[in-house]
Design a binder for these strands. Structure first.
Lengths: 212, 212
DNA sequence: ATATGGTTTAACCATTTTGTTAATTGCAAA
DNA sequence: TTTGCAATTAACAAAATGGTTAAACCATAT
């Protein structure tokens, strides 16, 4: 017998499973695997704690689901580097736009991933292998090609990547601190910071560092 | 009766209280207040769990002590901006040297502080008030003075501060990720990254951004 | 109407974790 | 040597937390 339409699993809307996943994302991002409390997740989702186990069996499995989703989205951002039709700088600019919009939506993401790598490098390795499938992490590779064919200046590609990631992700991660710190100096985070400004600032950095 | 010398509180050396505080710092930095386990702290310090309560009464009070210490050291780094005898750039370069060495020693510090601000803005406000006493947070103030008297280029001071903090603290925070990511691209974190390189890189950024 | 089966809940249980207590150790003053 | 007191410990109690169960709920098919 076929189930009626409104009883089928409806992910993406406000089905219970989705509510739980959203709540879990929020709480896990804030407190990590150890620090998160099942009751806290249940309260955030507005449901009974037993339902968490009904849908996800246990805490670790739930965490895995959240983490896998986060990781997949994270790696999607790297796809642009595989597009060899575009110039190195063009690819970098697109990446900057995408990754900053991504972090604006998931400010805790990088910390979440960093913590997980630290806690469990082996499992992470395996997950990444699944997540990226046949894609490759090409940022550095693309840079070094660009240097060889004279498209960009000769730079320290590893340090460039580190600087770039720092500029793009830390502002969102540290927004509570910046909010506070700016207010103490007579500035206003909401006014003085936004994604568009940051994009421009990072692009300036890239232009200065790679431009010939 | 006066206590014998070797029985007086000896902070700064390997007294029990200090051992506990060091262990607590390590564990709290790694897992946060919720995620940290008292037993884990006791094991790390190599003492009985009951001693933790003997010295610090309970988990929260212990956490407070650790956090207060962290905060004080963090704010110390800002003192250099009060030295009006030095040029703006000179002060920035000194700050960069200091803060990067600081983060090299306490890589989790910024995250620790960020999380705390997020969890409890009011208490943080109060703590900062104590920590900075009559000092003032001057980075932005110093920059705007420098712009007025033509010492540096006219820039967006808030964004500059955000970029600067990002470049200095994120690499340490995210080192597990960078280690992993670089390895996947045929590089080696230990070889390709060190504090001196980072200092130089950040100074280049400052020179480019502020230099006339 | 009633039966069916997925969904949701309150009330538990088992384990982990925080916190306490009473006894022991070790060291210095008398 | 004995006494006193802080430091330390093992064992225990209390609270918090993850996980289970059996019953209630509710929409639909018969």
């Amino acid at each position: 017998m076929v189930k009626p339409y409104n009883q089928m699993k409806q992910l993406g809307d406000n089905s219970t499973e989705e509510k739980i996943l959203d709540a879990a994302k929020e709480v896990f991002m804030k407190h990590g695997l150890y620090g998160a409390r099942m009751q806290d997740i249940a309260d955030t989702a507005g449901i009974n704690k037993a339902l968490l186990h009904y849908y996800f069996r246990n805490k670790e499995k739930m965490f895995d689901k959240v983490f896998d989703g986060a990781l997949a989205k994270f790696f999607e951002q790297l796809d642009v580097f595989s597009n060899n039709e575009l110039s190195v700088k063009k690819r970098l600019f697109i990446y900057i736009d995408n990754i900053i919009e991504f972090y604006a939506e998931y400010p805790q993401m990088s910390m979440f991933i960093i913590k997980e790598i630290g806690n469990n490098p082996e499992i992470f390795k395996e997950k990444v292998h699944v997540a990226k499938k046949n894609k490759t992490l090409r940022l550095i590779h693309v840079l070094e090609d660009g240097m060889k064919n004279g498209e960009i200046k000769k730079i320290d590609s590893a340090m460039f990547m580190i600087n770039l990631q720092s500029l793009c992700s830390f502002p969102f991660l540290a927004s509570p601190m910046f909010k506070y710190s700016l207010k103490a100096q007579g500035k206003d985070w909401e006014k003085d910071f936004n994604s568009e400004k940051l994009k421009q600032s990072v692009k300036n950095f890239v232009e200065f560092t790679l431009g010939k």
